[in-house]
């Protein structure tokens, strides 16, 4: 599958991207097996092509192990593609790594922090890595944390004393503080209570509206995807099986398999042949 569309306002472009983990080693070399013949080879992404337009909220919907996080790590310059190219605002993630890094930030399902440090200390550190300094930085950190519902008296206490939901909000603050032009959200609201989830979703919409940011969000939360995303790509087994708006995707399956008024979950099941909750055992590919 090779992308052939043309848009002048492209934020992210994947063109024939493949990524595998593992491959032949040890015994496989002895038996002269190729990468493909090796049982250890896990193909996380398989010839993936799509584009995300500027100022768009683009969703990647897929089960665990479908390759969503690998896709985010490739954009984040943490992994290198085996085949194909990825560009972020025209910058190749391999050749223009430094420039891409300045354009992006990410929130993943794990709120990764120095747990002994307070939210303020953690955010000062991460913001300074992105070149933010000055007295207004402390003010901004305080402001964003309060906006996200972190009580002011908790801003100076170690993160290890906070709930997972609160830690996740601090992770979201970390990404927003660097005002990324492209924000990568990898299941950002997993584990959050309904109110916190709504807060975060409102913040994402705010960021897009007021800051002209582009958002790529990986999720297996159908409601979240439907509420936030302008367009959605459905991913299964390392491949993009469909892309479009929610209505376009529903239209694709309407009338098939007796689906007259399909939900997004129906769409997913119809296009992939299984539900989102099925776990796929793909070692090393979250």
């Amino acid at each position: 599958m090779t992308y052939t569309g043309q848009h002048n306002d492209v934020a992210v472009r994947f063109d024939g991207v493949s990524k595998s983990f593992g491959g032949k080693r040890g015994r496989d070399r002895w038996f002269r097996r190729t990468n493909e013949q090796s049982a250890k080879l896990v193909r996380a992404l398989n010839d993936v092509s799509f584009e995300v337009r500027k100022n768009e909220i683009f969703g990647i919907l897929g089960a665990n192990g479908s390759g969503k996080s690998t896709l985010v790590r490739l954009i984040s310059t943490l992994l290198i593609t085996d085949e194909g190219t990825i560009t972020v605002f025209g910058n190749d993630v391999r050749d223009d790594e430094a420039e891409v890094k300045r354009l992006i930030n990410r929130v993943s399902v794990e709120a990764s922090f120095f747990k002994k440090l307070s939210p303020m200390e953690n955010l000062l550190y991460s913001s300074r890595l992105y070149g933010r300094t000055g007295s207004e930085l402390r003010r901004d950190i305080k402001q964003i944390l309060v906006d996200l519902g972190i009580p002011e008296e908790r801003i100076g206490v170690p993160l290890e004393t906070m709930s997972r939901g609160m830690q996740q909000k601090v992770a979201i603050a970390r990404a927003f503080l660097t005002s990324p032009v492209l924000l990568l959200l990898d299941e950002p609201t997993t584990g959050l209570d309904p109110r916190s989830k709504k807060d975060v979703q409102r913040f994402v919409l705010d960021l897009r509206e007021k800051h002209d940011a582009t958002v790529l969000i990986c999720s297996h939360d159908m409601d979240e995807a439907e509420r936030l995303c302008d367009r959605i790509a459905i991913m299964d087994n390392g491949r993009i099986v469909a892309t479009g708006t929610v209505d376009e995707l529903k239209d694709q399956v309407r009338g098939t398999q007796g689906l007259l008024d399909p939900t997004l979950e129906d769409v997913y099941m119809a296009l992939t042949g299984h539900g989102l909750v099925e776990e796929k055992l793909m070692a090393g590919v979250a």
Binding site: R102, T178, H211
Partner: peptide, 12 residues
Amino acid sequence: MSYVPTVAPGTG
């Protein structure tokens, strides 16, 4: 929600 980032990166 009153915080809006004002510093655009990528302009380094």
